[in-house]
Amino acid sequence: MVHDWYTVEIDRQPSAKPRYAERLQHAMILVMLLLLMVAIFLPLWQRGINRSLEVEYQTLLENRQALEEEQQVLRASISSLSMPESLADGAWREGIVFQPIKAAAMLPISRSSQ
Rank of each mutant, 00 (worst) to 15 (best):
N50L: 01
E54L: 03
L74N: 04
E56I: 08
Q13I: 02
I49Q: 10
I101T: 03
P84W: 03
L24S: 00
V73T: 15
E85A: 15
T59P: 07
Y6S: 09
V55I: 04
A103H: 14
R19N: 10
I109P: 01
A104S: 13
D89W: 13
P84G: 09
E94Q: 14
T7C: 08
M32R: 08
S113K: 13
V38I: 13
Y57D: 02
Y57C: 04
A103L: 14
A27V: 03
E70T: 05
R12G: 00
G90A: 10
Y20M: 11
P14C: 04
S82K: 02
F41S: 04
A21S: 12
I101R: 02
A39E: 00
E9D: 12
P18A: 02
V38M: 07
R23A: 09
L53C: 05
I49C: 06
H26M: 01
R93M: 02
L36E: 09
E94K: 12
D4Y: 12
A104W: 05
E54R: 06
H26P: 04
Y20F: 07
L33A: 07
A66V: 07
W92K: 15
S82H: 13
R23H: 14
G48V: 05
A91C: 00
S80K: 02
L36I: 10
A88G: 09
S15F: 11
R19I: 03
L34W: 08
S77E: 15
R12V: 11
H26F: 03
M32F: 04
S52H: 13
R12F: 06
R19C: 00
V8P: 01
S77R: 14
V38R: 00
L53E: 02
L87T: 06
M28H: 04
L44V: 11
Q99L: 15
L42P: 07
A66L: 14
D4G: 05
P84R: 01
W45K: 11
A21E: 01
L74I: 07
E70A: 00
L67E: 12
T59E: 13
A16Y: 08
F98M: 11
I78V: 04
D4L: 12
R12S: 05
I109D: 04
L30H: 08
Q58P: 06
L61S: 13
I29D: 08
D89L: 02
L30Y: 08
E62H: 11
